[in-house]
Design a protein around this nucleic acid. Structure first.
Length: 336
DNA sequence: AATAGTATCAACCGCAAGAGC
DNA sequence: TGCTCTTGCGGTTGATACTAT
């Protein structure tokens, strides 16, 4: 028979809230609190679903909310946290007083994602993807590149292909004009040229081409052994699995050593094709282990999200200048 | 000035897990 | 232990505002 609806939809108003409705809800909650959202609309004289009331209150009416633009510092915080926890908007929002998960999510989707993408950084992995894909582009035929770009970077395929096209030209120019190859397309292209990670990835890409189906389906982190291991915290810091190089460290070191670390720049995209995020890899209810080997659970169980961030391995308990990708820093400093 | 395209963000949806019985 | 209800979450949608042509 399916799921029981949370309320009688026929008798429920939907869409934008009016000021009168806001007043009714606010004054009711001021008097009675927020216990039992199902009853609140009834008691407050609102023809709304309880869920809708809760959302309106938490995302808009709550008196402690900020409604203005995101500050530079807030944006930096979002980017940093997203690089560690992925799309765990509630966790990120918990670090930003006055901001809701919806705010953060919207801001990420409408502004920050594009900003990073425009900077040549994959917003999913927070790694500069251009140098890697350019390497691949020099060795593979375009259809293969397109296929792999899609598999590896999912929803950023278009941006990637754009960069690839540009990069291929740059590389060709570089090769034909040695010494003049001033590649300004994307930051970090020089720094990682010898990165053996690239070689490893290329090797795996070659294998992927031979077995195209493996890309979206191969989810090693779902296997019992890998899953268990990947959920562990190494030394108290987050370690994410990669199907290519073992583990990708998503802690300060990987920022400090951007692009030169042991992790695969595309490991996260690789893992689920188009929609994988760090958050999906450390699912909210997976058991995690802290540095003492004690289990805890991510996400919803952690009512006070700061508990994660106040451990000995506080990823951002470090001066932001030491932590954040220099590319980010530059971009944020140039923030319009 | 009109229209089309794009960006923004409030609101909705379904799912999953916790709480309580 | 299992069921129901409630709550929280992340993804998605749609209305509106804004910009370009």
């Amino acid at each position: 028979m399916g799921r029981i609806p949370c309320c009688e939809k026929d008798n429920v108003k939907r869409g934008q809230w009016t000021p009168e409705e806001d007043n009714k809800l606010s004054s009711y909650i001021a008097q009675h609190g927020t216990r039992n959202w199902r009853l609140i609309p009834k008691n407050a004289g609102l023809q709304r679903c309880g869920k809708s009331c809760r959302l309106r209150w938490t995302n808009y009416l709550r008196p402690d909310l900020k409604h203005g633009q995101f500050s530079n510092a807030e944006e930096q915080t979002i980017v940093k946290l997203h690089s560690v926890v992925g799309n765990r908007w509630s966790l990120i929002a918990a670090q930003l007083p006055g901001r809701t998960d919806n705010d953060v999510k919207n801001h990420w989707n409408t502004k920050l994602k594009k900003k990073l993408s425009g900077m040549g950084i994959d917003p999913v992995t927070h790694k500069p993807f251009s140098h890697l894909m350019a390497e691949i582009a020099t060795t593979l035929a375009p259809p293969q590149v397109a296929h792999l770009a899609e598999a590896a970077l999912g929803c950023f395929k278009d941006e990637m292909l754009h960069l690839l096209t540009k990069k291929r030209i740059d590389f060709q120019l570089q090769q034909s004009n040695p010494g003049q190859g001033n590649n300004t397309t994307v930051p970090y292209s020089k720094q990682d040229e010898k990165d053996d990670t690239v070689e490893k990835i290329k090797l795996n890409l070659s294998r992927a081409i031979q077995e195209p189906d493996m890309l979206p389906l191969n989810k090693p982190w779902e296997s019992t052994s890998t899953r268990a291991t990947s959920a562990n915290f190494e030394g108290g810091c987050g370690v994410f699995p990669t199907s290519v190089t073992g583990y990708h460290h998503y802690g300060p070191s990987s920022f400090a050593n951007e692009g030169g670390g042991s992790g695969s720049p595309w490991s996260q995209s690789m893992c689920t094709g188009s929609t994988c995020t760090a958050g999906e890899q450390v699912r909210s209810h997976e058991k995690l282990k802290d540095e003492n080997g004690e289990e805890f659970q991510g996400g919803k169980e952690i009512k006070n999200a700061t508990s994660i961030f106040n451990t000995d391995c506080v990823l951002w308990d470090i001066p932001s200048d030491d932590l954040i990708n220099p590319i980010y820093r530059e971009a944020f400093n140039n923030k319009e």
